[in-house]
Write a protein that binds this DNA or RNA. Structure first.
Lengths: 101, 101
DNA sequence: AATATTAATCGTAAATTTGCGATTGATATG
DNA sequence: CATATCAATCGCAAATTTACGATTAATATT
């Protein structure tokens, strides 16, 4: 956003949908989610083996997915187990379904 | 993307889904699509009245939606009538539905 | 032919995204 | 207590996105 002039009030649903869409707007994140779904859950380290991407980059993608609410991390020291956030996943499903109906 | 090191081969479906998601990743574009759906079709000028955004900015958003294949423009000189691209809309619907199932 | 209307494009600026390596902090293990 | 492992965070650089005003191109209208 440039000169901070734009200042629209969007419908909450638009903002929510856009946020979920943004989380899904990178192929790596899409595939991370597919992997997570296939495996039920997984650790960051597993993903480093699956994707030829730096660990820090994967960590960043996970952070975005977590911020969007699509995944959640459970502490299993010294690892972290990531799973899909079922509730928000369902929320996203309904949002996209209604929107694209 | 920085040093152009990253070079993954993604599943085509991931790339496709990410591309549609990217098109939907901005609230303004979401609302443009909602407006378009409500009105069946509309002209760029109509949107300028609906959204408090510069004409050039709206034009850019329309361009992105068009590039993503979600809308199409029909020449009605001197105007351009934009409609939802039903075929790709359906494609996106199926993609998101399968993915979020 | 001159003017008005419409919408794309250009040029620019700021913010955000994407990626990496290096470092850090936290927890386990020897 | 020293060391190893794991994953987040920092710092940086390049690319992309988002926004604007100004200009341009194309078509209508007078």
């Amino acid at each position: 956003m440039n000169r901070a002039i734009e200042n629209i009030t969007y419908a909450p649903m638009s903002v929510e949908l856009a946020a979920y869409a943004k989380a899904l707007s990178h192929p790596t994140r899409v595939e991370i989610l597919m992997h997570l779904d296939k495996q039920a859950c997984c650790f960051t380290g597993d993903l480093v083996d699956v994707f030829p991407i730096a660990q820090s980059t994967i960590s960043q993608h996970l952070k975005e997915l977590k911020n969007a609410g699509l995944i959640q991390g459970e502490l299993r020291p010294p690892k972290i187990k990531y799973c899909i956030n079922k509730a928000n996943w369902e929320k996203a499903r309904v949002l996209f379904n209604d929107f694209l109906k």
